[in-house]
């Protein structure tokens, strides 16, 4: 049985809640099951926020909190010092960062400059670069569970017209630019 847990760690406004939903939509296009949910609390623009996804080849029935994800996706590298989660053994961290971030709690660390990608594609809302689709694009490169094409389809289903196109483009650019350190 396939079963994976993902944690998105971001700041309010960066699109982490939508990211979890887009990921679940993308895996469901590939015939898998999933569940996306936010951790609600004092969420405000700029404050640290979590969202989560579970992915399985069977309908997901567990709804309690995720404590040790397989994949931890950090939308702002300044948050790396505030991590309250450890990834599972064999798991990885994917961070939004222009250079290799220092992460002690994971064996594998990937990084991509999603802020630059968001800015160059005009994905800026109220002065905040929205990096969610770029981070997901990078994820599809380092994780075989979901393909870039399903992710793009998921993005285009979520936003029609130009907005969908630029988000899909940001995802593809991040797919090409993600650094694996190898």
């Amino acid at each position: 049985m396939q079963y994976h847990e993902v944690c998105f760690f971001a700041r309010g406004g960066q699109g982490a809640v939508v990211a979890a939903r887009l990921l679940v939509h993308a895996v469901s296009l590939e015939g898998l099951w999933g569940q996306a949910f936010p951790l609600f609390g004092g969420e405000r623009r700029g404050a640290p926020v979590y969202s989560f996804a579970r992915i399985s080849d069977k309908p997901v029935r567990v709804r309690s909190q995720i404590r040790e994800p397989d994949a931890l996706i950090v939308f702002d590298r300044a948050l790396l010092s505030a991590l309250t989660f450890k990834v599972k053994k064999g798991g990885f961290v994917l961070a939004n960062s222009p250079s290799k971030p220092s992460v002690e709690s994971a064996d594998r660390v990937y990084w991509v400059d999603a802020t630059a990608i968001a800015k160059r594609n005009g994905l800026v809302v109220a002065g905040w670069p929205v990096v969610n689709t770029a981070m997901l694009g990078a994820l599809t490169k380092v994780w075989s569970l979901v393909s870039l094409s399903s992710l793009k389809r998921s993005i285009l289903d979520a936003w029609t017209g130009k907005l969908g196109e630029v988000n899909a483009k940001a995802a593809e650019e991040a797919y090409n630019e993600v650094m694996t350190g190898e």
């Binding site: 939903r21 996306a36 949910f37 709804r63």
Partner: peptide, 10 residues
């Protein structure tokens, strides 16, 4: 609340 209301599923 939240566990179902804000959880997304296929």
């Amino acid at each position: 609340g939240f566990l179902l209301s804000h959880a997304y599923e296929p």
